[in-house]
Structure formats: structure tokens, C-alpha cells
């Protein structure tokens, strides 16, 4: 009969085995749940360098931003906006009726315009421009809520771009509306680059035209498809 160790060692062994299970259980829990706390980061290496990345904080400036706004009265290179046709849709105080010279209407431009329209405009105006976008619908729901408008929501029905008051507008005026907004619509000049705003204008014109299309507008060889 082999001599056995004292009982206490058995108990210690069982406790140690159980304790060894705790770290894996915690790790499995951590892998399968979310956490509000920042991830553990014991070795920083060069992960956090004393440099500014876009939209980061800085203690150097009063507003706490690393990105600096453009000083008042200055113009960035290539942003002089001397071409009023291209940048404002205006020549000699009149809305322009043509596209800028370097942005002729092409199928590529219209496709670009369609893609950008679908990103920035459809929320309110809808994909066909009839003013029935999802945001418009949601806002109207909030306004007509049974127990009063939710959180002070006010809303004016988004414009139907096929409305005669819109279809008569020259491209320069449409460009101005996209850039600076109108009535309750905010301007998209900072969100959408100039070229893309012109592409949207070209697409809006095409969209308006499509609502007024006649059979004669369809190429003869394809007329049978739409008849």
C-alpha cells in the first residue's frame, strides 16, 4: 500500500483546478459580449503617436480641434472661385442656362448625378423626385402624431421637383439651391463637391424631362418596348 499525501493537498489541488478555470471563462465571456470600456492595451508600442490625425483633439487650440478652420479672408490654392458660372451658377447677375464648359452632359455625368442624387436628395425628395422620401414620410408621421407633434417637430412637405415652379428654373438656379439651400432645405455646398452638385443638377433636369416624355422621345428601334 503506497502512502498517500495528507488530505489538505487534495483540497488544495481541487481549489487550484477550479481557479484555473476562471481565466478561460472570463476570456470566453469577453469574446462573446460587448463592453463600453476601451479595449485593454497593455503594450502601446507606437500605437499612439504625438501627431494629429484627421478630426482628433488638440490641447493647443482653444476650440480643442487639431483641424484648423480656414482663416477669414483667405483663399486656398485652386479655390479662388473666380469662375462664377461654375461656382455660383451665375453670369452677369443672371442664372446660367448651360452646364460649365468643363462639365459637358454625358452619360457618365448623368450616372454620377443619379448616384449622388440617390445619396443626398432621395431622403426627402424620393428616388423619382416627387417629394415622398423616407425622411419626409417619417417627419409627417411625427407631425401628425395623435398626441401632438413629437418633440416639437415641424415639417413642410418636401418639394416635388416636377412641380412647374421647379421645372422652369434654369440650371444655375438649381445649382444655387443645391449649394445654399432654400426655405427649409439646408445647403449641401459643404457636403457635396462642386462637380458632383453640377452632376446632380444635370440628373434633375433629366429626371424632370423623363416625366414629360413623349413616345417620339424614344429611339424608333426601342419604341415597341415601351408601347
Amino acid at each position: 500500500m503506497m502512502q498517500m499525501p495528507p488530505k489538505i493537498f487534495f483540497y488544495l489541488g481541487i481549489v487550484a483546478a477550479c481557479a484555473a478555470l476562471i481565466p478561460p471563462v472570463l476570456a470566453v465571456q469577453s469574446r462573446n459580449t460587448t463592453s463600453e470600456k476601451p479595449p485593454l492595451h497593455p503594450f502601446l508600442d507606437m500605437d499612439v503617436q504625438p501627431k494629429f490625425k484627421p478630426q482628433t483633439e488638440s490641447v493647443l487650440f482653444a476650440d480643442g480641434r487639431s483641424a484648423r478652420p480656414q482663416p477669414a479672408g483667405t483663399v486656398a490654392r485652386d479655390e479662388a472661385m473666380e469662375d462664377t458660372h461654375r461656382n455660383f451658377g451665375v453670369v452677369d447677375g443672371q442664372w446660367v442656362t448651360t452646364m460649365p464648359r468643363d462639365l459637358p452632359v454625358s452619360m457618365d455625368l448623368l450616372r454620377r448625378g443619379q448616384a449622388r442624387f440617390n445619396i443626398y436628395c432621395t431622403a426627402c425628395h424620393g428616388y423619382a423626385g416627387e417629394g415622398n422620401g423616407t425622411v419626409n414620410r417619417r417627419a409627417l408621421e411625427l407631425v401628425t402624431n395623435a398626441s401632438g407633434p413629437v418633440n416639437g417637430t415641424v415639417w413642410v412637405q418636401a418639394k416635388n421637383i416636377h412641380d412647374p415652379t421647379v421645372t422652369v428654373q434654369p440650371v444655375g438656379q438649381l445649382f444655387n439651391t443645391v449649394t445654399h439651400g432654400i426655405r427649409n432645405m439646408a445647403g449641401y455646398g459643404t457636403q457635396i463637391p462642386t462637380d458632383d452638385r453640377w452632376a446632380i443638377v444635370a440628373y434633375v433636369k433629366a429626371l424632370q424631362r423623363s416625366f414629360d416624355a413623349q413616345l417620339q422621345d424614344v429611339p424608333p428601334d426601342q419604341r415597341s418596348k415601351v408601347q
Partner: peptide, 16 residues
């Protein structure tokens, strides 16, 4: 930018 939020929220849920 905050302006992007306010494109809608000057009107929708403006007192939330």
C-alpha cells in the same frame, strides 16, 4: 459636421 445633423433636426425632433 453638426450641420449635417441639423439639415433635418432644425425641424424634425427639434426639441428632443
Amino acid at each position: 459636421a453638426t450641420q449635417t445633423c441639423m439639415n433635418c433636426h432644425t425641424q424634425v425632433q427639434k426639441d428632443s
